[in-house]
Design a binder for these strands. Structure first.
Lengths: 258, 258
DNA sequence: CGATGGATTGAACTGGTTCAAGTGGAGTGG
DNA sequence: CCACTCCACTTGAACCAGTTCAATCCATCG
C-alpha cells in the first residue's frame, strides 16, 4: 500500500528521531511484516503519503547490480530488507567497499549528476526507489523530510571518518575487531535489542575490500580471534562475539595478548 | 562589516552554485581583501545579513587547536583564510588526517553533541564562528542556507569515499600522485585559474597521516617523482606539477615506467 | 655561529601480500 | 542417499612494499 514508507527500524539517526516521531507515521510493511516509518508525514487529497506517488518497488536477487559507477544518478534508494554493498573501483580492478547497507538505509543522494559508486545486492533485497530530482524538489516544501535526510547524511559522513582512521592506521587485527563491533551495533539496531550473535551476509572478499586487506588476511584474523577465544565462528557467515570488552580494546589498539 | 559573509572563492559546490548565485550577495572581505559570498541572503531591519549577528571572528596562529575531539560541538566554523587540518586519533597516538580545509570550507556540522575530530591551524587562520544550534534552527526558516550547507556536506561525503579508495587500495606512489592532483584542484579553485604550481602548507607528517603512510615513505615518493621528472620540488612546501597527464594516470594505477 | 626541528637518505626488518595447495559444505543429479 | 562438482574459505610458505630505526642534511632563528 504505502510504498513510500521507509524502513527505519531503530533510532539510528540519533537525536533527530525523537523530534521526527512527533510527525511521522508508523505503518506495517506488507513486504517484510515489520513496522516502517513514513519518510514524510504529508498526505495528499486521497490521504496517501505524498511520497507514495513518486516511489516504485524494486526487487533484486543476490549479486545483482542496483546502480553502477557511471549510471546517471536518477534515483534515491531506500532499502526495505536485505543487504547491499557500495563500492568503488580502480581501472585495474582493485576495489574498495565503502559501505554495507541494511534495512532502513538510504543511498543515491551523495552524488552529483552521476553515481560515483556501484551498489550491488548481497542478499535478495527489497528496495524502494524515488526519482531523485522530485525528492530534491520536495525538500523546500517539506522541511521534515529534508531534516531527516540531512541528519542521515551527516551521520554517514561521521562514520566514513571513522572508517578512514581504520583504513589508514589500524592493523589487520584491529580492523577486523572494529568491523565485528560495527556489525554488532547494526544488528542490534535492526533487531532492537543487543545481540552478540552477528550475521555476516557478505563474503570474505567483501570484508577484505571493506577493510583494505586481502581475503587471506581476513581469514587468518578470523581464525586467530577464534583461537584466542574472543569470538566463536559458526560457519563463515555467523559469529558469536564472546568478549565484547576485549574486542573493543583490541579494536582501538589496546594491548591484549596478541 | 558583514562578518557573516562566507569565503567561497570558486564554484566548489558544483551545480548548486549557479542556482545559489541568483540569491546570494557578493561582498568584499576586509580581512583578506577578496570577494566573499554571503551564506544567507536575508537582511534584517537594519539591512544587515541575518547571520552577521550570530557570528564572531576568530584568529589562530599556526599549530593552535581550533576544536578538539571531546569538545562540545557548539559551533559551526567557516574558514576565511588560511589552512586547517582535521584529524582523528587512536588512544596510542596513531593519527589519521581526514582532511585539509582552506578558505571557504566549513566544519563543525558533521557531528552530534561532540566533535569527533580535532581541528588545528596549519597556517595562521582567520575563522568565522557561528553558534551551531542557532544555525540549525535557521535552516527551517531559510531554505537557501540549508541547501548550500547540505550540498557541501554531500560533496564532502563524496570525496571521503574517494579517499577511502585511496587509503584502502592505492600504493604509496599512487597516493602521492592523487594527493598532488587534489591539491592542484583546490589551489586552482581558490585562485580561480588552473595553476600547476602548488603550495603545500602542511608538513610531511601531515601528508603522511593523510595518506596512511610514514613520513619517510612520503619523502621517498616525493624524491622519486622529482627524479622521474613528473614534478619539480622547490623546497619542501612548493611543487610544480610538470606532467599532469602522467600524474593522473599514475594516480589511478596506470602503468608508467616506475 | 650553534642549536633546533623538519626533511631526506640508508639499511634492516616485518606485517600483510602473493602464490599455491588444501578443505569443507551446499547444490546437483544419478 | 551417496558421489561428484564447484566455489568460497582456510592454511602454508616465500616474498616484498612500506615500516622502523638510525644517521645525516639543511633551512631557519636566536
Amino acid at each position: 500500500m504505502n510504498i513510500a514508507s521507509v524502513h527505519i527500524p531503530g533510532s539510528k539517526i540519533g537525536n533527530a528521531r525523537s523530534k521526527a516521531n512527533k510527525y511521522l507515521n508508523q505503518k506495517t510493511c506488507e513486504g517484510c511484516a515489520s513496522k516502517h516509518i513514513s519518510l514524510c508525514n504529508v498526505m495528499d487529497n486521497d490521504g496517501l503519503d505524498i511520497l507514495s506517488r513518486l516511489s516504485s518497488d524494486l526487487h533484486k536477487k543476490a549479486k545483482q547490480i542496483i546502480c553502477s559507477e557511471d549510471d546517471n544518478a536518477e534515483y534515491l534508494f531506500n532499502i526495505r530488507c536485505g543487504a547491499v554493498r557500495i563500492s568503488k573501483m580502480l581501472p585495474d580492478g582493485r576495489r574498495q567497499v565503502t559501505g554495507f547497507l541494511f534495512a532502513g538505509d538510504f543511498f543515491g543522494l551523495s552524488c552529483e549528476a552521476q553515481h560515483s559508486y556501484t551498489a550491488e545486492a548481497i542478499t535478495p533485497v527489497n528496495i524502494c526507489r524515488f526519482p531523485r530530482k522530485k525528492i530534491l524538489g520536495l525538500f523546500q516544501e517539506f522541511p521534515d523530510l529534508n531534516e531527516r535526510v540531512f541528519d542521515m547524511t551527516r551521520t554517514e559522513l561521521n562514520s566514513t571518518h571513522a572508517q578512514m582512521l581504520l583504513l589508514g592506521r589500524k592493523t589487520a587485527k584491529e580492523k577486523l575487531c572494529s568491523f565485528l563491533l560495527v556489525m554488532r551495533n547494526k544488528t542490534s539496531l535492526l533487531e532492537k535489542r543487543v545481540k552478540d550473535e552477528v550475521d555476516l551476509p557478505m563474503g570474505r572478499s567483501d570484508i577484505a575490500d571493506y577493510l583494505g586487506l586481502t581475503v587471506e588476511t581476513v581469514s587468518r584474523q578470523f581464525t586467530s580471534l577464534n583461537r584466542l577465544g574472543l569470538i566463536k565462528l559458526d560457519g563463515a557467515h555467523r559469529v558469536f562475539l564472546k568478549n565484547i570488552e576485549r574486542l573493543s580494546t583490541m579494536a582501538e589498539g589496546g594491548r591484549t595478548l596478541s
